[in-house]
Structures are given as structure tokens and as C-alpha cells.
Design a protein around this nucleic acid. Sequence first.
RNA 1: AGCGGGAUGGAGCAAUGGCAGCUCGUCUGGCUCAUAACCAGAAGGUUGUAGGUUCGAAUCCUACUCCCGCAACCA
Length: 476
Amino acid sequence: MENKKFYITTPIYYVNAKPHIGHAYTTIAADVLARFYRQQLGKENVFFLTGTDEHGAKIQKKAEEAGKSPQEFVDEISSEFKKLWAKDKLNIEYDNFIRTTDGTHIKAVQRVLQTLKDKGAIYKGEYEGLYCVGCEQFKNEDDLVNGKCPDHGTAPDLMKEESYMLKMTEIQAELLEKIEKEEFKVTPEKYKNKIVSFLKNQTLHDVSISRKNVSWGIPLPFDESHTTYVWVDAFLNYLTGLGWDGDENNLPEMWPVDINLIGKDILRVHATIWPAILIHLGIKLPKIIFTHGHILSDGKKMSKTLGNTISIDEMLEKFGTDGTRYLLLSAGPFGEDIDVTMERMVEKYNADLANGLGNLISRVIKLAEGYEFENKNEYDPLIWNKGFIEAFWMDKALERISDHLIRKSNKYITDNKPWELKKTDEAKFKEVMQKLISDLYLVSELFIPFMPETSEKIKKALETKKLDEVLFQRIK
RNA sequence: AGCGGGAUGGAGCAAUGGCAGCUCGUCUGGCUCAUAACCAGAAGGUUGUAGGUUCGAAUCCUACUCCCGCAACCA
């Protein structure tokens, strides 16, 4: 059955640091999907949500270090994300940008927590964790260096603290069933397998959903001495981002989520705590959790220590908005880890965009100058990419446009020599050019979701037979 | 230790039982409409190692080597 609406989300990004290439990758992919479905279903039937996650101990600490209030700090970083998504940067066309510090979000979260408490899904228990006395905070294994707090050089103590807990064990069987039956589809397959084996092999323990000594968070409505643990706060954005007020009997029309797009680092929580909350509330689960891989650089995780990071600003500067969008999406199969290096991206940029697409447009426009041609393309652009995009094969979709249209057109020009025909056989010349122009109209339409600006520029050039600027100047 | 992913011509990838293909790079030739771009042809691989199954293996099985990641409240 055909979906009549399409609701897609990115994770909301934690504002402990400025946006990086990974955030950009997820968001570009979501944007391409959203733009594609807007073409298919109409703008009003698509909702694309992104935003920022702004509470928690880590933020509180970072703000302190920066000598700012938490609110100032999160305002600043959140706006960095917004700027990066703007038209002059990555050109992300979201329908809403939610912030977990929005008043409406906070109210809705509190309402949900109260409901969960009333339903008996939340109880008072104890959270056990590694506590650093110097930081007055619980630490995660990942925060530690050689088992010691990096700030204080001391090993944290195993400590217990009063905390409210969300019942996980009792929903485990139901969750597993929903995942196995793909009522709650975790995809690609390998990630589903991961989660299924995880859920089969151990009993989920109840999770702590509050913190006692973190002030930068949403206070529990039934115990103001606790703030809400960030994950619980964050997950609910997928609902509050639609304007939901926290009443489970009054869900937004766009619900459920069609695609929760996430990176593999946050798969486990998204496939356990998030659905657990919804099951407790009696709300339908998202249809699909799509997990994509990470961006590696030279086969390794990007890290400052290794010095192999590639900044998104650097990419934008070098490749422009559409170049960056193209390169990230075509770097490898969506879902797998993709490996990028600046060197290879420059190569691909030159090969596909400058020498391929850009040069093709130049030569066709020059040849067509002074003549009139229409768009006589016979293919339906909405069908052309459909199968691929529905399968999330954005890289394959791009590859096929390159192969079937761009390379073929270049060959067609060489084979038919329109510059000669122009002098010797005008009828044939017009026929050849008409075919080229029509194919390029198709190219411009197919690129709409991927490279909206470029698509526009191509269309304009085809209509006016003039190219105002060189598309994708070759990088030396 | 365990779990997951991977190893294919110089580089990056494709091919899940049937002649090992694509892009980039290299070499040679062609073209001159175009962004020193475009087109054609060529060279280059005993598919990580060792065994096994099969008429047939990159693909299935076993063992091993190496690389990467994960190892629940890290957003």
C-alpha cells in the first residue's frame, strides 16, 4: 500500500560541540529523502524534522568551561547547526527545527513523564555508576582515560544514587516481537540482526531516567529534585517536533514516524529505550529506523588525535553546497560505513561534476546557442529514481544518472559531431541537439532532491541557452 | 576472550555458484562544440592464506592471518 504521508527525522544533535561532517551526512540524506517524497506526495504530505538536543550534565560542564550560562551556550551552538543547514551552506529544507529547550517541548515531556509515572512505568530506584568526586558527576566509560577522570586524574568510584527508573524488562518480549515481525522495522538487515540478538541474549535492565545532581535539564513533574535524563528528553522530540503537547490520546496527524534516520552509534538506544517509552504510552512505534554507517577517513574513525578529520566547512568551501551534498552521498552505499579522503573527493568532484556534468552542460549550451528546443523528454523523472530512493540507494541513483545520462550524452556528442552538422545538415543537427537537450532536462529533474540549486541552474541554462556561470569549476 | 563488518588489478569499489566488471590513475590513438574538458583502444587481478564441497567458487564450508568497529544508559 502506498503511503499518503511521509514523516522523516534526523536525530537531534547534541550541542556539546559544533556540527561536524557526520551531522551533515545524516541531515543531507534526510533532506534528499524529504525532497524526493515532496515530489512524490506533494509538499503538504511530507514533514522533515531536525533540531538540537540541549540538556544534560555534559552541556552544563561545557558551558561552565566556556564561562557562559547553559542557555547562552546552547543558543550559540544550536544556531551553528541552523546556520549550517541554511541555504547558502548545505541547503537543508526542514519543516521544523526543534530545540529541547523550547517551552512547548519541556511541557510535553513533563506531561509524558507524569503519564508514565501514573501508569506505573516509572518507579523510584537506584542508579549505579562511576562517580567522579572532583566533577561531582557520573562518568561514562568513554569519558575516562585509562579508567581515570581526564580532568582530575583520579579513578571514579562506583556509587549509587536515588533515581527514577523506566521499566524495560516487562516490555522486552513485545519489543522483540515487533522488531522481528518488522512492525517496527530496524534496517538495514545487519542492524536488525544486531538488535535481535541483543534482545534475545540478555534481559534488559530498567533504565535510569533521572539525575539528581544535574540542574540543566527538565525537572520531573513529580519530583523537582530530579531532572530528566537526556535520552528520554531527546527521544520525545520526534513527537513534540510535530507540535504534540504530550497527550497520548491526541497524536499529530503525521504520526507515526516513517523514517527515524540515525547513525549506528545511537542504534541501541533508539531500538530499546525509545520504543519502550512508546510502548508504555500505548503509542504506535516508528515504521522504520534506518541506520547508516559512519564516515571514516582513510579507513579510520575521524579523530583529532589522528589528525584525519575533514571539516564540513572545508568541504563547503572547496566543493560548494551541491558539490558537498553530491560527494557525501555518492561516497558509498548508504547504510555502510563510508571512507572519504580529501584527495579522493577532489578526484570525484573533478571527474563527475566538473569534467562530467559541468562540462557537458557547457558544450551542449554552447552548441544550442541561438536555436530553440523544447523539453521532449519521455521518461517520468518521478519513476526513474523511485526504486532506488525507496531502498535508500542514493549512491546508486546518482551513479546511474552519471552512467546513463551524462556519460552517454558525452559519447552521443562525439559520435554525432553536432558542430559539423551545424554547417552541413541542419535538420540532423536539430534532431541531435533536441535529444541532448531533452536528456539534460531529465538530468535537471532527477537532480532536484540531490542538488536543488544545480538542478535549477541547468534548467535555466536549457531554457535561455545561456550559462551565467561555470558549473563546478575544476579543482586543480 | 566474545560479537559484528571487511580483505578483489596502482587507488576506491562492484559482482552471493556460471566467461572477474566499474570509476579514478597510467599508456596509445582520435576529436576540437566544451571547464587542458570529451570519445576510443590497451596494459594491469592465480579475488588475504591453507584446505574442503561442487561439473564449476570472489561467492558455500572449515581453519588461520591481518584491518576496522562494538562490548547497553556515550546524544
